[in-house]
Simulated assay, not measured.
Amino acid sequence: MSSSAPLADPRDGSFKRQASSFREVISHSHPVFKPAASRYWLYVSLACPWAHRALITRALKGLTSVIGVSVVHWHMDSKGWRFLPFESQETDNRNLCFGPSGGVKCLPHSKPTNGVTSESYRAGIDGTIDHNYHLSRLSELYYKADSNYGGRFTVPVLWDLETQTIVNNESSEIIRILNSGVFDEFADTDTPSINLVPQELEKEIDEVNEWVYDNINNGVYKTGFAGKQEVYEREAANVFAHLQKVENILEKKYAKLIENYGEKAAPSKFFIVGEQLTEADVRLYTTIVRFDPVYVQHFKCNISTIRDGFKMLDLWLRNIYWNFEPFSSTTNFDHIKLHYTRSHAQINPLGITPLGPKPDIGPL
């Protein structure tokens, strides 16, 4: 299926996410997919929280010069994701693909969207071309990998330029591949080494990821795409119950950090698991940074905003956004707001994009 947006199951009104189809890894021992610089490519949407995970991890690991990026247009129509037309671009500058967000500039605030339409093809603003094959649709890339492919055409896609196929299209596995160390020998030397899944924290990271994914990351989708009132109310209540769970964890943690290190040093150790940035922060961030700008109004997650109802979670969000450049440089509020409000006709049939909230994210 390649519909413009997933729909609720008509039998019970609930939203069910499709499992990913390509699940290979990259390693020195793999018979095909071995680590190398400039061999692999990411196809992403800046609006998509799952693709955003991969972009953040790529930047944190110093791999922006190792793995290139192509960015689909923010608007997803009935045929799925599309690239900017190759014919409309004067140059095919691959150097732009090796920045944090693939050559599309990310700002700490969204711009007025009056006059911007789904047919706006502004290079470096609405998306990019497909730099490798000049394809018009992401679906064409899937069919290039498997001519009999029958699933939805999702992002992110980790692509192998050598064998011309998809290595993996499951975001949780892609970020583990990027973090695994297989590309460390090619990484940017000026990027501090970071392991997002240190062995001593792995069990706790996995446990947090599991309930955050089901109840928050995917919970906002189960709320927004609910097909029945009772399903929506159940899912919305569940999202906020688990946001409160995160809030309680962070509140206790911050108080302990102040006690141990003082108020000035506490923010530098203020993370979900342990006292360092981990994969748990990356995976939660991509939902929370979208919450106030789109999920509150578009997915009807409006019991509260993050900034008004969850003081510690908001502090954690602002701390990460403003103090860790790989997060801010890959967060595009224009793509986020335009995509959700103009791609889901069954939720927002008039395609009107709200002006607020202002600001998209609070100051540090």
Results as ranks from 00 to 15, higher is better:
Asp146Cys: 04
Ala59Leu: 09
Ser180His: 01
Glu24Asp: 15
Asn93Leu: 14
Ile272Gly: 01
Val282Cys: 12
Glu140Arg: 03
Pro192Lys: 09
Pro49Arg: 09
Asp214Tyr: 12
Pro85Met: 06
Ser120His: 05
Asp281His: 05
Gly151Trp: 07
Phe153Glu: 14
Pro267Ser: 05
Gln346Pro: 00
Ala51Glu: 08
Phe291Ile: 05
Ala8Asn: 14
Gly150Glu: 04
Trp74Pro: 11
Tyr40Pro: 01
Lys264Leu: 11
Gly102Pro: 02
Glu279Asp: 10
Phe299Thr: 04
Leu60Thr: 09
Ile56Cys: 06
Ile249Gln: 15
Ala59Phe: 03
Ser88Trp: 09
Asn179Ala: 04
Tyr254Gly: 10
Arg17Ala: 10
Thr189Val: 11
Asn93Tyr: 05
Val212His: 12
Leu277His: 11
Leu196Pro: 04
Ala5Pro: 04
Leu46Cys: 08
Leu55Phe: 07
Glu207Arg: 14
Thr287His: 04
Gln18Ile: 07
Val282Leu: 00
Thr163Trp: 13
Ile56Met: 07
Ala54Leu: 06
Val72Lys: 08
Pro354Gly: 10
Phe240Glu: 13
Phe153Pro: 00
Leu178Val: 07
Lys61His: 10
Glu251Ser: 14
Phe240Leu: 05
Glu259Leu: 15
Ala265Gly: 00
Asp292Phe: 00
Ala59Asn: 01
Arg94Gln: 06
Lys252Ala: 15
Arg11Asp: 08
Tyr295Cys: 06
Val71Trp: 07
Phe324Ile: 15
Arg342Asp: 00
Phe291Val: 05
Cys301Ile: 01
Leu60Asn: 02
Ala145Asn: 09
Asn302Pro: 03
Thr278Asp: 12
Thr117Met: 08
Val212Ala: 13
Glu185Pro: 06
Ala51Ile: 00
Leu60Phe: 00
Tyr321Cys: 07
Arg234Leu: 15
Glu140Pro: 03
Gln199Ser: 13
Gly150Gln: 13
Asp160Gly: 12
Asn218Trp: 04
Phe225Asn: 04
Gly309Ile: 08
Asn168Ile: 06
Tyr340Met: 02
Asp160Tyr: 08
Ser171Asp: 07
Ile129Gly: 07
Asn95Val: 04
Leu317Met: 15
Ile320Ala: 12
Phe270Arg: 08
Thr128Arg: 10
Thr117Ala: 12
Gly13Ser: 10
Thr287Trp: 02
Lys253Glu: 02
Cys97Asn: 12
Pro85Asn: 08
Lys79Ala: 13
Val157His: 10
Lys264Ser: 14
His52Arg: 03
His73Val: 09
Thr331Leu: 01
Glu170Gly: 07
Leu338Phe: 00
Leu355Ala: 08
Ala280Val: 01
Asp308Glu: 15
Leu201Phe: 10
Ala123Glu: 11
Tyr285Lys: 03
Asn215Glu: 12
Trp50Met: 04
Phe86Arg: 13
Leu60Arg: 11
Asn169Phe: 05
Gln18Leu: 12
Thr57Tyr: 03
Asn169Arg: 10
Glu90Val: 07
Pro6Val: 03
Tyr149Asn: 01
Glu140Thr: 02
Asp308Ala: 12
Asn260Val: 11
